[in-house]
Write a protein that binds this DNA or RNA. Structure first.
Length: 592
RNA sequence: GGUUCUGUAGCUCAACUGGAUAGAGCAACGGCCUUCUAAGCCGUAGGUUCCAGGUUCGAGUCCUGGCAGAAUCACCA
């Protein structure tokens, strides 16, 4: 529709003023609520070359469009804005052809090559916290929105399962764990392992304090620490495939995986493939050594290997330590290559916080330097940090918000609220539990996803999660209300052919116009990789529907055709709400 | 210090990428349930869009210079 208007405008300026309009000059927007009209053409851009005032041009174009487009019923010009009023038929016909299409706005994938999207990427030494929650929700949702826009999406996870930090929790458990297991303690596996990671840190601090008192210099504390020595020794043993260490490593990692799986499932998150750093870091090492042979990298005197990035105005980047062990960058090179070979993707996306902007910039450059032509297919989907009222989360200082705790708390709040409002009266226990889960997850997901991913966001544990206003539950509630309305009507098919378009009233028109925008919103959100665009759209839609619902009785009308029309519109809204919420990973209830 | 990002109502966030009078929610205040679900709807109040210049028909949005905050610049990941 938008395209048709612009094409006609283009023809008009050519015929009237002999102007060849460029893409940029053709500006169309929705008419503001205060003015009469549906679409607005901005005519300022033509003023100069047409040598006429904007108002005159608006009149000319308005006349032309009214004559040449059946859809245009009338027009008015205010300053440099040409407001077009469409015939009601345009909207009523749009409604009747689309209201019952459950895939309205969603495109089936036609792509061969997939776009691979990595997210979550947890460490196996501690449980997930609020920062991971944003990452997980964003990753899952970006995958879904791209899929909805017709991309062929593969979701992958890269588990950081090796390294000195993993050895720390292993060592602490070995020393002080007394054979505790998730079964014996009743703790989730990741929580149990995390407990020992924290314990290690405490013990290390104590040891360092003692060393300090003995006069050891600050810079040498790590080197002098007996605990660190043992951790490093354990890492060496791990790399040499020491059986006992490997056994412990497997045991504890499996505890963590079981814990993660539980959390992922609760959040509704899944992956097509899971990579482990323990399986990829050697590939990266191999790549570096080969590139060194090709003289694309440099070896320093002490034996360490570097990439010289001076041609990009950057410093050198270390890729292998002098003892030959790999660093973070090295294993990312390996994973990228492995992933490229596994999927032959058109794009490789990494959902990782903006604190790693520099890292991903360098990753691409190093790959380029090593002559991998697919380096440009890597894209960092960078998102902002989650901050707490008293600043950033720091695991060491115990100021993290644990993901499981957070979800538990949300569940309890949602449950109390739902009971208080009498929403679960008449539901079975299982149904009630399902509903409360849906609502608490909806509240959390919507709260996080409605914010522009690029921006830092603030999370206040006491105040952030609401269930009224611009929230997930508000949207869920609207869906339930529509479903209730439809049940009450007892109808599932509607006679729309005989409906008189003149009966269309403004609150209906506003809703239908919003519905018409949905396909473009999905595309835009996929292009920007921003679920927030979908979230904000859905809120606006639901807001408009509620205004309609409040003012206009649906089932009470002398004219059965009007009732049918309004019910069909409600079906349409419910479909789009369900579809857009699904993009955010949020389910909607039949009643609440 | 260099680089990048951010700065919009008391608070949390929008603003279709340069368009009309900057919008929502929360919090505050006032209304609306004998009528389809009040987790709702309506209204009131709340703004020098951090500051100063510039570009043009037109700037929250673009350019320059400040101010404030965050991230990053590791032989951590």
């Amino acid at each position: 529709m938008e395209k048709k208007i612009l094409d006609t405008v283009k023809k008009a300026v050519k015929e009237l003023y002999a102007i060849e309009a460029t893409e940029k000059q053709l500006l169309l927007q929705k008419t503001l609520p205060d003015y009469e009209g549906d679409f607005t053409v901005v005519v300022f851009p033509f003023a100069k070359s047409a040598k006429k005032s904007p108002v005159e041009i608006g009149e000319d174009l308005g006349k032309y469009l009214k004559k040449n487009m059946d859809e245009v019923a009338d027009y008015n010009v205010i300053k440099g804005f040409l407001n077009l009023v469409f015939r009601n038929e345009v909207w009523t016909q749009f409604l009747s052809t689309n209201y019952n299409d459950e895939n309205y706005g969603i495109n089936e994938s036609q792509e061969q090559k997939p776009v691979v999207i990595e997210f979550s990427s947890p460490n196996t030494n501690k449980p997930l916290h609020l920062g991971h929650v944003r990452n997980n929700l964003l990753g899952e949702s970006v995958a879904r929105v791209m899929k909805a826009a017709g991309r062929n999406v593969k979701k992958v996870n890269l588990v950081n399962d090796r390294g000195i930090h993993i050895c720390k929790s292993m060592l602490a458990w070995q020393k002080w764990g007394e054979e505790e297991t998730p079964e014996s303690t009743g703790l989730k596996g990741d929580q149990l392992v995390g407990k020992y990671y924290v314990l290690f840190d405490q013990k290390l601090k104590e040891e360092k304090e003692t060393l300090r008192q003995q006069g050891v210099a600050e810079d040498n504390l790590d080197e002098a620490s007996e605990l660190m020595k043992q951790a490093r020794e354990m890492l060496r043993k791990w790399e040499n495939r020491d059986e006992k260490v490997l056994e412990l490593w497997k045991k504890m990692n499996n505890w963590v995986y079981e814990g993660f799986d539980e959390t992922y499932e609760r959040m509704g998150i899944s992956f097509d493939k899971v990579y482990h750093e323990s399986e990829t870091y050697l590939i990266g090492k191999q790549m570096v050594l080969e590139a060194l042979k090709r003289n694309q990298l440099e070896k320093a005197e002490d034996g360490s290997v570097w990439a010289d990035l001076s041609e990009f105005d950057l410093d050198k980047k270390l890729l292998l330590r002098k003892d030959g062990t790999s660093v973070y960058m090295t294993q990312d090179l390996g994973t990228a290559k492995l992933r490229y070979e596994d999927f032959d993707p058109s794009n490789m996306l990494y959902v990782v916080g903006n604190e790693q902007d520099y890292h991903f910039g360098v990753l691409k450059l190093v790959l380029k330097k090593m002559n991998y032509e697919w380096a440009d297919r890597i894209e960092h989907v960078s998102y902002g940090m989650v901050e707490l009222p008293d600043g950033k989360m720091k695991s060491r200082e115990g100021t993290v918000v644990d993901a499981d705790d957070l979800m538990d708390e949300m569940y309890h709040t949602a449950k109390a609220m739902t009971e208080e409002l009498g929403k679960i009266d008449g539901l079975s226990n299982a149904e009630a539990e399902n509903l409360v889960n849906m609502i608490s997850q909806g509240a959390l997901k919507y709260f996080i996803l409605k914010v522009d991913p690029k921006k830092n966001m603030l999370f206040n544990p006491e105040k952030s999660i609401n269930f009224t206003g611009n929230t997930g539950p508000f949207i869920q509630y609207t869906h339930a209300r529509i479903k209730s309305l439809l049940r009450r009507s007892g109808k599932s098919s509607f006679d729309l052919d005989a409906y008189n378009p003149e009966d269309l009233i403004l609150p209906e028109k506003d809703v239908i116009k919003k519905l018409a925008a949905y396909p473009a919103v999905v595309k835009e959100a996929a292009k920007e990789m921003s679920p927030a665009i979908v979230a904000n759209y859905t809120f606006e839609l639901v807001k408009l529907y509620n205004q309609f619902y409040q003012d206009v009785p649906v089932l009470k009308n002398d004219n059965q055709l009007v009732i049918d029309f309004r019910l069909a519109m409600s079906v349409f809204v419910a479909n789009v709400v369900r579809s857009s919420m699904a993009i955010l990973g949020i389910e909607v209830p039949e009643q609440m």
